[in-house]
């Protein structure tokens, strides 16, 4: 428990212009609590960069750098190389950050390079499933049937017709020492994974599910609830992997039908209009069931 003064001293401070109920800022706060002040962060262009560093303001009390959209991992590689060259790497965590677009789409190449070279960098992907900063356009991590402004639903479409790219498996394919998937809805689990990542030398990938109020279209108070429902339905399996082996999964305590998750979000409301939509919900249920089976979530 922090006093009022102590809350003002947090490494990621209030005063940023993130949306009310933003699960990304919530996650950053949780992550910084573990990483501590001996951290240097890089940031891809995106929501977090824009809402945390509008000059002359900055919410960061650690050294932080934003360069471009697709090079967060490469800039972090450079930071790590410079620290090594100066003999100052010991005790300093290099954190690279990006949204799902900056990570899995435009940033995938530089991320793959960073993984393959096994830089001592923790890469965190804040996954809200679309290009939220530019106004909710589809990304490679947009889930199946979600409405975005570039995968709209309409007479001929139920929204995004491709499944979410399985980014953590791409990370694991690089045989990096640690890959983990976490959720803003489970702070202890998230922080445990950050702590573990911090203790490992080499490239680490952490993907965090961060519900987005304006992009997913729900009431701000449901950010945590939705993050938890994503896990409890099986749509967002949380796990840890070392190299290419999954070493732990977060079990679902009580399986929830996907409908419970979908119905709270405007981006899926087109699925609740008619029978054709119901059939689509069945398809999403199938995705969840397959996840449960594959990861052994129950």
């Amino acid at each position: 428990m922090l006093t009022k003064e102590e809350t003002h001293n947090e490494l990621f401070t209030m005063g940023h212009t993130g949306c009310s109920g933003c699960a990304q800022s919530m996650s950053v706060k949780m992550i910084m609590e573990i990483l501590g002040k001996n951290t240097i962060a890089t940031n891809a262009t995106g929501c977090l960069e824009v809402f945390s560093t509008r000059w002359p303001e900055s919410s960061w009390k650690i050294p932080w750098i934003h360069s471009l959209f697709e090079n967060s991992a490469a800039v972090a590689s450079g930071v790590e190389a410079a620290l090594k060259a100066m003999g100052k790497k010991d005790g300093i965590t290099v954190l690279a950050q990006g949204g799902d677009g900056g990570t899995a789409d435009i940033g995938l190449q530089s991320l793959s390079g960073m993984f393959e070279r096994n830089h001592d960098v923790l890469y965190v992907c804040y996954d809200n499933g679309a290009y939220m900063n530019t106004g909710y356009q589809r990304s490679g991590l947009t889930p199946f049937d979600a409405y975005t402004t570039t995968s709209p639903s309409g007479k001929e479409s139920f929204g995004n017709q491709r499944p979410k790219k399985y980014m953590p498996e791409i990370a694991m394919a690089h045989r990096i020492p640690y890959t983990a998937v976490a959720s803003a809805g489970y702070p202890m689990d998230l922080q445990k994974k950050v702590k573990k990542a911090k203790s490992i030398t080499g490239a680490k990938y952490l993907q965090v599910d961060v519900p987005c109020v304006p992009g997913w279209k729900y009431e701000p108070k449901y950010s945590v609830k939705l993050a938890q429902l994503a896990v409890q339905t099986g749509l967002y399996p949380l796990f840890e992997a070392e190299y290419d082996k999954i070493i732990s999964v977060k079990k679902i305590s009580k399986k929830v039908p996907v409908e419970e998750y979908l119905k709270l979000q405007g981006r899926f409301k087109h699925l609740f209009k008619d029978d054709a939509g119901r059939a689509e919900i069945e398809k999403i249920q199938k995705i969840a069931d397959e996840n449960i089976e594959r990861f052994g979530l129950i």
């Binding site: 003002h8 940023h16 945390s52 000059w55 002359p56 900055s58 009390k61």
Partner: peptide, 22 residues
């Protein structure tokens, strides 16, 4: 803040932004 070498922000300067108005 020295503005001449790129626009660099001071640590935690966002605290000056009172977002309570949201």
């Amino acid at each position: 803040m020295d503005f001449k070498v790129g626009i660099i922000a001071m640590p935690g300067a966002a605290l000056s932004n009172k977002t309570g108005s949201f």
